[in-house]
Amino acid sequence: MSESSFLDRTRAGYDSIAPAYAAHFADVLHADPWARALLTAFAEEVADTGPVAEFGSGPGDTTAYLAAHGLPIRGIDLSPAMVDLARRAYPDIRFDEGSMTEPDLADGSLAAVVSWYSLIHIPPAERPGVLGEFHRVLRPGGRLLLGFQAGNEVVRHNEGFGRQIALDFHRLAPDEIAAALETAGFTIDIRFERRAMRPGESTPQAALMATRSS
């Protein structure tokens, strides 16, 4: 699968389901104290260090949560429909269209990067390039927070909220992602894993926080 095809399919899928997706997941952070704890700790850790970007910001809820905790954050998403929803829901936060495969950001321009359940759409062959881009846009000592479903399989959804889509969800093995981050020039700071324990979950959940090496 070419880069353009997986990006096109991901963009089209989320454009198609954007309003229903935003409504369905509107309370997901409220229902997950572990996710809130991780995001809050991250916000405190990177406070006052400089600009922050969330890649794969979707309808903007996670970006807004981090902004409410004091971070000067912007959201970047592949889907124009998602960006439009985020702009309307959170008009005081900047949201832009863009891809984590080729972010339109200068080298070392960010103090922190968040990819909260968005790396799951990147095929394995493209993943080192994305982690390399995160490294590029972060300044030395900058922080990266990744959230993802843990596992090894790929789940293809051909239908979502009554719409035909073609979205691939890659479950990610924490050991493999940690090793890939180290190869990309990061030092792992924190590793979090838990079993599926919230309503609607079918897989374990994981998060990694890392620091960009000098």
Results as ranks from 00 to 15, higher is better:
49 T>M: 07
50 G>R: 02
51 P>H: 12
51 P>I: 07
52 V>Y: 05
53 A>L: 13
55 F>A: 05
55 F>W: 12
55 F>I: 01
57 S>H: 05
57 S>M: 08
58 G>T: 02
60 G>Q: 08
65 Y>K: 04
66 L>H: 01
66 L>T: 00
66 L>P: 02
69 H>G: 05
71 L>N: 05
71 L>C: 07
73 I>G: 09
74 R>Q: 15
78 L>P: 02
78 L>M: 12
79 S>W: 05
80 P>A: 07
81 A>F: 01
82 M>Y: 00
83 V>L: 09
84 D>T: 14
85 L>M: 07
86 A>I: 06
86 A>L: 07
86 A>P: 11
86 A>M: 08
87 R>D: 06
87 R>H: 08
88 R>V: 15
90 Y>I: 00
90 Y>V: 00
90 Y>S: 10
91 P>E: 03
91 P>M: 02
92 D>M: 11
93 I>G: 05
94 R>A: 15
96 D>Y: 05
97 E>V: 14
99 S>P: 02
101 T>K: 02
101 T>A: 12
102 E>T: 13
103 P>D: 10
105 L>Y: 01
109 S>R: 01
111 A>L: 03
111 A>G: 12
111 A>H: 05
111 A>W: 04
113 V>S: 11
114 V>A: 09
118 S>G: 11
118 S>V: 09
118 S>P: 02
122 I>K: 00
124 P>G: 10
127 R>T: 14
127 R>W: 00
127 R>S: 06
127 R>D: 04
127 R>P: 11
128 P>Y: 05
130 V>T: 08
130 V>L: 04
130 V>Y: 05
131 L>N: 13
131 L>M: 10
131 L>D: 12
134 F>Q: 13
134 F>W: 02
136 R>L: 02
136 R>T: 11
136 R>D: 05
138 L>P: 09
138 L>E: 09
139 R>P: 10
140 P>R: 14
140 P>S: 12
144 L>S: 05
146 L>P: 07
146 L>Q: 11
147 G>N: 08
149 Q>I: 03
152 N>G: 09
152 N>H: 15
152 N>L: 14
154 V>W: 00
155 V>N: 03
156 R>L: 13
156 R>S: 03
156 R>V: 15
157 H>W: 02
158 N>W: 03
158 N>E: 15
159 E>D: 13
160 G>W: 13
162 G>M: 10
163 R>W: 01
165 I>K: 07
166 A>M: 05
167 L>D: 01
169 F>E: 09
169 F>I: 12
169 F>T: 11
170 H>C: 04
171 R>N: 10
171 R>D: 07
171 R>P: 00
172 L>V: 15
174 P>D: 07
177 I>C: 06
177 I>G: 04
